[in-house]
Amino acid sequence: MDRIAVLIPCFNEERTIRKVVTDFKKTLPDAAVYVYDNNSNDRTAAVARDAGAIVRKETLQGKGNVIRRMFREVDAECYIMADGDDTYPAEAAIEMVKRVLEDQADMVVGDRLSSTYFDENKRHFHNFGNALVRKSINKLFKSNIRDIMTGYRAFSYQFVKTFPVLSKGFEIETEMSIHAIDKNMNVANVVVEYRDRPDGSSSKLNTFSDGAKVIRTIVSLFETYKPRAFFSGIALVLFLLAAVFFIPIFINYRKTGLVPNFPTLIVCGFTVIAGLQSFFSGIILHTLRKKDRQDFEKDLIRCQERYTELTKRNERN
C-alpha cells in the first residue's frame, strides 16, 4: 500500500507527460506516480516510463474506464488524480494531500473556476458549460462544490474503494461529485491555478458531444439519487397537462350538461393515472434509496477495517 499515489490517465500526451511526471515526483518525492495509457498512438507510455512513472495500460477507451482500472488496482492512503496535459500545478497537491491525510477529507476538489480558468481557457463554450454544470448540480443537490468537472482531485482510500464507476468517458468527474454529495462525504475545495495547454498539445474534449453526455449524466444521476423529486416533477407536469385540457371540458359541462370532447376527457383520465403512477414510483424508489444508503454505510465500515489492516501492515514493514 502506497502512502500517496498520483494517478494520471493519459491518451496521446507525449508532448506534456514528461513534465507532469517530473513535477509530481519533485513535489511529492515519496509518492508513487502511476501513468495509465489509454491506447495512445504516440510515445506517451515510453516517455512516462523514462521519466520514472509506473506505466500501466487500459485497453477500454474512455477516461471513466481508465479511472475504474486505477481505482481497482492501486491501494494508497491518499490518491491524487491529475490530467497528463500539464494544465494543473503539481505544487497544489501538497495542500490537497494535507486535507485528506490530516483533515480526513474524502474528496478534495482542485477548484480552477475560482482562479485563472476563465482567463486561460480560450474555449468559451467550455467556460459557459463548466459554470452551467456547477450551478445546476449545486442547485439540484444542495451542495457547494466549486468546480464540478475539474480533473484535479484528491481522494481518501474509503472514497476510492466504495465509488462505483459507471461512466465511460469525461462525464466521470460529474459522477464523482454527485456520489460524494449523495453519500454525505467530507468534500473540501482547494483553489488551484489553471494554465491552458501548451502549444502542440490538443484537447480530447468535444464541446458539444461531451457536453451533451454530461447533461445526460446529470439527469440520469438526479433520477437515480433523487427519485422522489424526479418522479414527482414528472407527475406534476402530467397533472398540469391533464388540468389544462380538463378545465374547459368541465366548464362546458357545467353550462350545458354535455361533454362534446369525450376522447379528450378519456386522455385526461389516463394522463392523471400516469401521473399517479409516476408519483408512487418515486415514493417506492425513494424507500429503496434509503436502504441503499444503509448498505453503503456498512460497506464503508468494511472498507475502513480493510484500510486499518493495510496501514498496520505498512507500519510493520
Score class of each variant (00 low, 15 high):
V6F: 00
L7N: 03
I8V: 10
P9Y: 03
C10R: 06
C10I: 06
F11W: 15
E13H: 12
E14P: 05
I17P: 13
V21H: 10
F24C: 07
K25E: 05
K25A: 01
K26Y: 09
K26A: 09
P29F: 07
Y34N: 06
D37M: 04
R43H: 11
A46E: 15
A46R: 04
R49F: 10
R49P: 05
A51V: 04
G52C: 01
A53D: 07
R56T: 13
T59Y: 14
L60N: 11
V66F: 00
I67C: 00
I67L: 14
R69V: 08
A76L: 02
C78M: 04
I80Y: 10
D83W: 00
D85G: 09
T87N: 04
A90E: 07
E91M: 08
A92I: 03
A92D: 11
E95W: 03
A105S: 14
D106Q: 05
G110H: 08
S114K: 08
T116E: 02
Y117I: 08
E120M: 10
R123V: 09
H124F: 12
A131T: 07
V133S: 03
N138V: 03
L140C: 02
K142C: 09
K142Q: 14
S143D: 10
I145W: 11
R146N: 14
I148P: 05
M149V: 12
T150L: 06
T150N: 01
G151H: 01
Y157L: 03
Y157N: 05
T162M: 02
F163Q: 06
F170C: 05
I172W: 13
E173N: 14
T174F: 08
T174S: 13
T174Y: 08
E175P: 07
E175S: 02
E175N: 05
E175Y: 06
S177G: 13
I178A: 02
H179T: 04
A180R: 01
A180D: 03
I181Y: 07
N184W: 10
N184D: 15
N186A: 07
N186F: 04
N186L: 02
V191R: 15
E193P: 03
E193Y: 01
D196G: 11
D199M: 07
S201G: 08
S202W: 14
K204M: 14
F208P: 10
S209W: 07
D210L: 00
D210I: 00
G211K: 04
A212D: 09
K213W: 10
S220P: 00
F222E: 01
Y225F: 13
Y225P: 07
Y225V: 00
K226C: 14
F230H: 14
F230W: 09
F231I: 06
G233R: 04
I234H: 09
L236E: 14
L240I: 15
V244K: 05
F245K: 11
P248K: 02
I251S: 11
G257T: 03
G257D: 03
P263I: 06
G269Y: 01
L276E: 12
F280C: 01
I284P: 02
K290S: 10
Q294D: 15
D295V: 00
D295P: 00
E297R: 13
D299T: 11
L300G: 01
E305A: 12
R306D: 14
Y307K: 12
Y307T: 08
T308L: 15
E309L: 12
K312V: 08
